[in-house]
């Protein structure tokens, strides 16, 4: 099934397993979501458990907080990444902090699904990388699946978790296909996956760029004889640094690949952690292949702007040719 279908299946199965799970957002009910992720949930579970909200993102998250206080497990959708900004206050000020503010008495088992990132030629505000905002906010878990089976499993895990999760779905992989065994869980949240083993350079990435990294690894192997190790983080909070560290100890070289602007992105955090903890294992500085510190470009420029196979391989080459002198 596609990633869209896998996410829909996870929502269906979670709602079936626990009647406290409610799904809501803009156009998720009658329409089944603009990407059809929630297709059929309203007819199956009724309009009390899958419903359309007014066009008001702060209300979607704020109401979810109130429902969680009363014992429900809300799974709201924000229709597109750029529309999380109107809900920013509710996410940062309340969703993330309610457990702390109540000294651990009130959990926030809210999974905020957000179709995210670029690569599908969308209009403005529909291609944003928001992960850094959430990863920088104490109290939020941040999950980014890269495959249909992982999307199914990670979403089921997120909904069952008693902490708030921002679940960023890479739109450009929505139509990727994979055999997904319903009910089967892959690795839990907080465990990274080594998608390709190698010993030349460690490439750390997540979400939609995992496939890009694997494509680059094939080219690197065929054309240069390099064996890239590709790590899919799967969750940014918690961060599985142990898996990254084990790889960097082996390769001595690390490149971080992400779509969002370079400054203070996940690449910055990973570079800091790697040099703090693995300085003497490094043969070269940790490098970053990323988007740029500009607004996300209009559709006709996005293929140039986004980090792809070429930018990643150029960065890998810079790592391999780093001159110690």
């Amino acid at each position: 099934m596609t990633m869209v279908q896998a996410i829909g299946a996870a929502l269906h199965d979670a709602m079936e397993a626990d009647d406290r799970v409610v799904v809501f957002g803009e156009d998720v009910g009658r329409q089944g979501g603009v990407f059809r992720v929630t297709d059929g949930l309203r007819s199956t579970f009724g309009k009390q458990r899958c419903f359309d909200t007014p066009l008001a993102e702060s209300a979607i998250v704020g109401a979810a907080v109130g429902m969680a206080i009363r014992g429900f497990r809300p799974v709201p959708e924000i229709q597109f990444d750029g529309f999380t900004y109107p809900a920013f206050d509710q996410i940062v000020t309340h969703l993330a902090k309610y457990r702390s503010r109540t000294r651990g008495l009130v959990n926030m088992p809210v999974t905020l699904r957000v179709p995210s990132f670029g690569g599908i030629g969308s209009p403005e505000h529909h291609s944003e990388s928001t992960e850094t905002y959430w990863a920088h906010t104490a109290g939020l878990k941040v999950v980014v699946p890269s495959t249909p089976s992982d999307a199914y499993s990670l979403l089921r895990d997120s909904i069952e978790l008693d902490d708030p999760v921002v679940f960023l779905e890479p739109k450009r992989r929505y139509w990727a296909r994979e055999d997904v065994e319903r009910g089967k869980r892959t690795e839990p949240i907080g465990k990274a996956a080594v998608r390709r083993a190698g010993d030349t350079v460690t490439v750390v990435t997540y979400g939609g760029l995992v496939v890009t990294a694997l494509e680059a690894a094939a080219v690197a192997h065929d054309e240069h004889g390099w064996d890239l190790e590709i790590i899919d983080l799967r969750s940014l909070v918690p961060l599985d640094f142990d898996t990254v560290a084990a790889s960097v100890v082996k390769t001595g070289r690390c490149v971080v690949l992400h779509e969002g602007p370079r400054t203070l992105g996940m690449g910055a955090e990973l570079a800091a952690r790697v040099q703090e903890e693995l300085f003497w294992n490094l043969e070269a500085p940790v490098l970053r292949a990323t988007g740029f510190d500009t607004p996300y470009p209009p559709a006709r420029l996005e293929s140039i702007w986004l980090p792809g196979v070429d930018r990643l391989l150029d960065t890998v080459e810079r790592s391999l040719t780093y001159d110690h002198a």
């Binding site: 409610v22 009390q48 702060s58 209300a59 998250v61 704020g62 109401a63 979810a64 907080v65 109130g66 429902m67 969680a68 206080i69 009363r70 014992g71 429900f72 809300p74 206050d89 509710q90 000020t93 309340h94």
Partner: peptide, 20 residues
């Protein structure tokens, strides 16, 4: 402390009351 933001929590809690 954040002014008015809790009004949305009240609505969510009230909707939950209906469901319960």
């Amino acid at each position: 402390i954040a002014i008015g933001t809790h009004a949305l929590h009240a609505v969510g809690a009230a909707m939950a009351s209906t469901w319960l």
